[in-house]
Write a protein that binds this DNA or RNA. Structure first.
Lengths: 127, 127
DNA sequence: GTAGGAGTTGACATCAGTGTCAGGTTCAAG
DNA sequence: CTTGAACCTGACACTGATGTCAACTCCTAC
């Protein structure tokens, strides 16, 4: 598939897909005319890249990480260096803390939403 | 307490604390000389602000949200407007998706870390 | 009162991913 | 061929929280 379709399938902008390529996160074949071509594996990979971005990893770490995970596009290919393992451990701990914070924040939102809804119900005469 | 202590207690920079104030997230008393003074309640509030930032809310939404939650500094004070409740619902859904993504990403990290450690063990002759 | 650490405001920089526009090329369809 | 949608590169802007620096003032301890 070409870049437009990949963008549509993943919900990621063409701009970002090209950016990922410059960062070494996403490879593409080229048509004789120079247009990017992707296999089906690209969809999963892009989604995974997005998830890692969302987890707060930057391009550099994602680029190091990707070849160490088994993927539809090739295989496990590379293994993580001890230093990378260290860094990933730090990231994992950060993510765990982040998840905990997120759950708390979500619960706060829930509480506010809930109590506002109750007030609304009262206001509507439901209570 | 003054700003330096609050920064130390919360791990948030003075710069950010002043920024929060400009955004209407954090009030302060002032000494006659103009220096900021905070009560103990500020520590919890700052930590909560940070958590909401981490959850991807921007200053504006946090500012709307804060007065709607019960807090050590005053009370429930205000109630959420229907429109705000709507917006918060959207945020909550986003946060829930984010949490799910984060868990997946963390598991990916765990897997890479795990398998690298195993390889390392083998390399060390443990296996 | 004075030294110096702590605080003040204001301005500018940064980061990193993404949006967007310009000017040109490629590809598929008629 | 030609037309128009899709794609290419390159450049610039933005966002928004935070870092940093400058020039100045306040507060505490001596």
């Amino acid at each position: 598939m070409r870049i437009g379709e990949l963008a549509r399938d993943t919900g990621v902008s063409e701009r970002s897909l090209r950016y990922y390529e410059t960062q070494g996160l996403l490879r593409s074949e080229r048509t004789p005319g120079g247009q990017r071509t992707y296999g089906d594996w690209a969809v999963d990979r892009v989604i995974r890249i997005q998830a890692l971005y969302a987890a707060g990893l930057n391009s550099r770490k994602i680029a190091q990480l990707l070849p160490c995970m088994r993927d539809t596009d090739g295989g496990p290919s590379e293994r993580a260096t001890p230093q990378l393992v260290d860094e990933l451990g730090v990231e994992r701990d950060r993510i765990n803390r982040l998840i905990a914070d997120l759950i708390r924040s979500r619960d706060v939102l829930d509480e506010v939403i809930e109590s506002a809804s109750e007030l609304l119900d009262v206001g509507l005469g439901v209570g």
